[in-house]
Simulated assay, not measured.
Amino acid sequence: MKIRPLTIEGAYEVTPVQHHDSRGAFLEWYRFDALAAAVGHPLDLAQANLSTSARDVVRGIHFADVPPGQAKYVTCVSGAVLDVAVDIRVGSPTFGAWEAVPLDSEERRAVYLAEGLGHAFCALTEGATVAYLCSTTYRPGHEHGINPLDPELGISWPAGTPLLSTKDAQAPSLAEALAAGLLPQYDACCTRIESSRRM
């Protein structure tokens, strides 16, 4: 398993080793110890989510209040998506930056996103199925969104007409979320991660 940091601090790409034979393939898509060694602390597993999307569906940009925040480990188990990490941490050196990683059922890559990062993806195939492990459970009232079509972010979605939920389409821009005080603070995210390292 190869784990490499992305340009946004706290985001990593994970590429597993696949073993193929006449029966099919086997791989380790998540390794507790390997991820902990790469990011500096273990990922607490509190919830696992699965979504299936039609082609051109864009989900996100989603994030949770910090503390406690919600770290995510994401892979595509069927079809293909373009997965996007967005740095929405106020005070971060890369605030407003985003990075995309293709996830599919061929290469079997995954991404890890630390607490405080925004997450979104675009389905590139019909029935694209995404599985993600979360460090905390869903907390109504503490989960937020940013409009994935915010022109200031300028995310290049590979969809002719992105299909959004009503909630995502009505989500504020990054600037509006900043003005409303919804965004996590970079220092609080760093403190949260440091506390995880001491556990």
Rank of each mutant, 00 (worst) to 15 (best):
V58Q: 12
G116R: 00
H62A: 12
A110H: 03
R197C: 13
P42W: 11
R4H: 07
T52I: 15
A180W: 00
A128E: 03
V58A: 08
L35W: 10
A175M: 03
D44E: 15
T129V: 00
L50D: 09
E143A: 06
E13R: 13
V17I: 14
M1Y: 06
E194Q: 14
G69N: 06
H142G: 13
A179N: 10
L164V: 07
A159R: 10
H20S: 13
V17L: 14
F26A: 09
A34M: 08
G91W: 06
L117G: 07
R4N: 11
N147D: 12
P16H: 15
V39M: 07
A36P: 15
G160F: 02
G127F: 09
Q170Y: 00
V81Y: 00
Y138M: 05
P68Y: 00
K2R: 13
G79E: 09
Q70P: 07
L182W: 09
L82M: 13
L183T: 02
A71C: 01
L50F: 08
P16L: 08
M1I: 08
Y132G: 02
V14C: 15
D33M: 02
G116Y: 06
T94N: 11
V74D: 03
A114K: 00
E9S: 14
A180C: 05
G181M: 01
T191L: 12
P151K: 08
D33I: 05
C190Q: 15
N147M: 01
G145L: 01
R23D: 11
N49E: 07
T75Q: 10
D21Y: 07
R192H: 11
H62N: 09
F26M: 15
P172M: 10
E176M: 07
G160H: 05
S92C: 03
M199K: 15
A48M: 13
W157K: 09
C189L: 01
C190V: 14
V74T: 00
T75S: 12
I8K: 04
G154F: 04
D65Y: 03
I3T: 09
M1C: 08
G127Y: 03
C76L: 03
S156F: 02
T94C: 02
S53V: 05
A131K: 01
A80E: 13
T75N: 05
A159F: 04
C134H: 03
R31P: 02
S195K: 10
Y30Q: 11
V101C: 08
G10L: 05
V66P: 06
A85S: 10
E13L: 12
S196W: 12
S78Y: 04
H62E: 11
A64R: 12
A120V: 07
Y186R: 04
S196E: 14
K2N: 15
P184Q: 00
M199R: 14
G40P: 14
H20C: 04
I8G: 09
H142E: 11
C189T: 01
